[in-house]
């Protein structure tokens, strides 16, 4: 059971049987379910899942329906990580006592939005990683509290217009920089942290399989383009994700044992950040004369981050 599922190409992958069901209430074109599908299909192991409160939880468990074909639990906003850590600890204890009815080794995966992970559930995640549970935590990072109407979270990037940081005559919207969650989790001593995107499915599957098969707490930050709050056409979800990864706004990389950084995707043609910003309604105001200087700042920030990642990859520290 516990051997890694072999996925050579997309045709082979398409023979997987989905364990996440349709008729959930996520928006048309939502990247959350693309990510969840890719993660659940990446393995044939039994799964025990949990979700924090957020779009994913609210839309997939609307009484009297559930969209999950695996054991799934929701408790609160902050504790998808501790709920799954508790289940993992119980499984370990029962196994040690020989009280498991079936000898199966499930994988433990917690899902949370960026609000539940970067802000509200941060302390809980930190605790789980410090205790070293054998689990994987997945952030569906859509850079905003999309479920409650688009309030800013600590993942919201500079210049984005959110309902609690609206852009207007005196403000260009969100003023704080995005929290570097990956470095924080790597600093916990996690054996594997990675940033992935749904449009690079092969990359995603590789990261997920590696994360599931390493013992210890692993962390996946998945970029999730939000058609409602980023304000673009539902059909463009994959195109926007492509722009995000190719403009290096979301560089894809992994950090092993908190030290070895590997860049897992290098775009052949790097797209200017301006194109990524122009495609979304939340950055519309940046193209007014008043705020145009911010686009240049964006590009500089992305460039210096890319430079930093490359140098860190070389230095192996």
């Amino acid at each position: 059971m516990s051997e890694i599922k072999k996925i050579k190409n997309l045709k082979e992958f398409s023979t997987s049987a989905d364990r996440f069901e349709g008729a959930n209430l996520l928006c048309p074109g939502c990247a959350h379910s693309i990510i969840v599908r890719e993660i659940l299909n990446a393995t044939n192991d039994d799964l025990i899942l949990s979700s924090s409160t957020g779009c994913l939880e609210v839309c997939t468990a609307v009484y009297p329906y559930t969209s999950w074909d695996a054991s799934w639990i929701h408790i609160g906003f902050e504790n998808s990580s501790t709920a799954i850590a508790g289940a993992e600890a119980m499984h370990k204890a029962l196994k040690a006592k020989g009280r498991l009815k079936q000898d199966r080794d499930p994988k433990f995966v917690a899902f949370g939005g960026d609000g539940a992970s970067y802000d509200i559930g941060f302390q809980w995640i930190s605790g789980c990683f410090e205790r070293g549970h054998d689990m994987m935590y997945v952030v569906l990072d859509n850079e905003v509290y999309a479920n409650t109407g688009g309030q800013r979270s600590s993942s919201t990037p500079i210049g984005s217009s959110a309902t609690t940081s609206p852009a207007g005559r005196v403000s260009y919207g969100e003023k704080m920089n995005k929290k570097d969650m990956l470095s924080i989790m790597a600093a916990h001593g996690s054996p594997y942290v990675a940033q992935v995107a749904p449009n690079k499915w092969k990359n995603m599957i590789k990261a997920v399989q590696q994360g599931l098969n390493i013992e210890g707490p692993t962390f996946i930050n998945a970029m999730s383009a939000c058609t409602t709050e980023w304000k673009f056409d539902p059909a463009d979800t994959v195109a926007i994700s492509d722009l995000a990864t190719d403009s290096l706004v979301f560089p894809l990389y992994e950090i092993i044992d908190g030290k070895e950084l590997n860049i897992t995707y290098r775009p052949k043609n790097i797209v200017p950040v301006e194109e990524y910003l122009a495609a979304q309604g939340r950055f519309k105001h940046l193209f007014k004369d008043q705020y145009k200087y911010l686009i240049k700042e964006w590009q500089e920030r992305v460039d210096s981050n890319w430079e930093y990642l490359q140098r860190r990859e070389e230095a192996r520290v």
Partner: peptide
Amino acid sequence: DCQFCWIYCPDM
């Protein structure tokens, strides 16, 4: 049969 539609369909 490239299956791009399969992998990117958000609604199975």
